[in-house]
Amino acid sequence: MKKIEVRDLDLFYGEVQALKKINLDVEPNSVLALIGPSGCGKSTFIRTLNRMNDLIEGVKISGTVLLDGKDIYKEVDVIELRKKVGMVFQKPNPFPMTVYDNVAYGPRIHGIRDKRTLNEIVEKSLKAAALWDEVKDRLHHSALSLSGGQQQRLCIARTLAVEPEVILMDEPTSALDPISTMKIEELIEELKKKYTIIIVTHNMQQAGRVSDYTAFFLNGELVEWGPTDQVFYNPKDKRTEDYITGRFG
């Protein structure tokens, strides 16, 4: 069974149509990369999957998005949905709290009060985000004292602490240096054993390195999607080929 199925998804910002009839499936425990020039709708699309677009005034959506066969706009409570579908943002956005409190925030708001359970979750999540060794001695320092790369891994740990099934990543490395980027990419490789990952990236090499599937967006349309190798080396659509070859020089 597919993890996510998107059927005929349209999205309007007021009068402007930002997504046009998107159809796409996501396999469980795979990494799907969304590529395309900026403004092509890939970030808008990823935000429809956990209904972050609900927060924006004047957004209209039609079509269906199924998560495990259930329509997330009709059959699933938005808060339940966001627990299942976590998100990592473009710029690291840790809360102005301690490292510990950042990770414990999610479990706490979902009703976990027990100190020992929280400690376990924090440790497990930080380990899964490959950050534990670097911060275990300063769990109670401000999260803002971490470096940019560490902050982004903290944000990943914060997402993992809620035990999602799907993780959305909106250009998670665009604000980071190459070494931090490499660490996050290794982490993605590790995480896909347990989670389904959808990542927006403007970096073609990154898409090639980390993803199993690739989807190419242009002007709000999904031009083509399939296994990454196929999209990269044997694209069906002329526009995809132009974009990829253009990018590779």
């Binding site: 956990n50 972050m52 927060l55 808060i79 339940e80 949905l81 966001r82 627990k83 976590g86 998100m87 943002f89 710029k91 956005n93 840790p94 809360f95 102005p96 925030y105 999610g106 706490r108 708001i109 979902h110 944000c155 914060r158 997402t159 809620v162």
Partner: peptide
């Protein structure tokens, strides 16, 4: 971005505001 991070974790609006 802080609000978004909180919402993305499944917090309610009130939890996001108060916490």
């Amino acid at each position: 971005s802080l609000r978004e991070a909180s919402f993305a974790l499944g917090a309610t609006k009130w939890q996001t505001i108060t916490k």
